[in-house]
Computed example of a mutant assay.
Amino acid sequence: MPELARTRPRDTGPAPVAVLVEGASDAGVVRLLCETRGLTESVATYQVRDMGGVTNVGHHLRALHSESDRDTGDGVRVLGLYDAPEERFVVRALRREGYDVGDARDLAGLGFVVCDRDLEDELIRALGPERVETVLSELGELERFRAFQRQPQWRGRDRVEQLRRFAGTASGRKLVLARRLAEELTPATTPAALTALVDAIESAAAPR
């Protein structure tokens, strides 16, 4: 596996960690879960980077290489969160940067964690539709969701699918809802992908 930069000397604290995530809702959830672990985001510990879409992963990897090249003492450990349907973009970008990556097992070894479908699906399934609807009610969105359910193309569909699609039907809703759902998680209900990512951040950012 190629190094992104030289290793920081042991007596200068932890090497910084860059966490690449697809969008703003992913970034908000990861930050919240890190905060619950007592992890403080900073240039000396870790930084969550919203890539603005998974197709930008190569650009962000190259930028991290460039930033590392300009710094003679600090190293950058790259972790990531991606959706299973978008795996090919992550694999392709890492290969172009010189990583020996074949499939999802190799990605996991590099600290790139996969959601089965996407983050919203993970959160909805973790909490269950009833709890998600309670959160929608608290946010003043439940009646809008009921109207969405009555639309011909969504009437009678699986409620998890309805909730997942509804989350993305208005500007800003996905970010607000994802973070609010994350606030409802407990260690027992946190999706395995998110637990694995926060574990990796905590380990990589720990003082050496």
Rank of each mutant, 00 (worst) to 15 (best):
M1T: 00
P2V: 03
E3K: 13
A5W: 02
R6Y: 07
P14S: 15
P14I: 04
P14K: 07
A15T: 14
A15M: 15
P16T: 12
V17L: 08
V21E: 11
V21R: 06
D26L: 05
A27Y: 05
G28Y: 05
G28I: 04
L32W: 03
C34S: 05
E35F: 02
T36F: 07
L39R: 05
E41T: 10
S42Q: 06
V43S: 13
A44D: 14
T45V: 06
T45C: 08
T45W: 03
T45L: 08
Y46E: 03
Y46S: 04
Q47V: 13
R49P: 01
D50W: 01
D50P: 00
G53A: 02
V57I: 15
L61Y: 08
R62E: 14
A63D: 11
H65C: 04
S68K: 08
D74H: 12
V76W: 12
R77W: 03
V78M: 07
L81P: 07
D83N: 09
A84F: 09
A84C: 07
E86I: 00
E87W: 08
F89T: 00
V91G: 01
V91W: 02
R95K: 12
E97V: 06
E97P: 04
V101R: 09
D103L: 00
A104P: 03
D106I: 04
L107W: 09
A108S: 12
G109C: 06
L110E: 08
F112H: 13
V113Y: 04
V113N: 01
D116Y: 05
D118I: 01
L119F: 05
R125G: 03
L127R: 09
G128H: 08
P129R: 00
R131A: 13
R131G: 02
V132A: 15
E133W: 07
T134H: 08
V135Q: 09
S137P: 03
S137Q: 15
E138T: 10
E138K: 11
E138Q: 15
L139T: 06
L139M: 15
G140M: 10
E141D: 08
E141V: 01
L142F: 07
R144C: 04
R146G: 02
A147C: 03
R150W: 01
Q151P: 00
P152Q: 00
R155N: 04
G156E: 00
D158V: 06
D158C: 04
Q162C: 15
F166D: 12
F166V: 13
A167V: 00
G168H: 10
T169M: 09
A170N: 07
R173K: 06
L175H: 03
L177V: 13
A178W: 01
R179W: 03
R180G: 01
R180M: 06
L181Y: 09
A182D: 05
E183T: 04
P187C: 09
P187W: 12
A188Q: 14
T189A: 11
T190A: 14
T190K: 07
P191I: 11
P191V: 11
P191E: 13
A193P: 12
A193L: 13
L194M: 14
L194S: 14
T195Q: 10
A196C: 02
A200E: 02
S203G: 06
A205K: 01
A206G: 06
P207Y: 05
P207W: 05
R208L: 05
R208H: 02
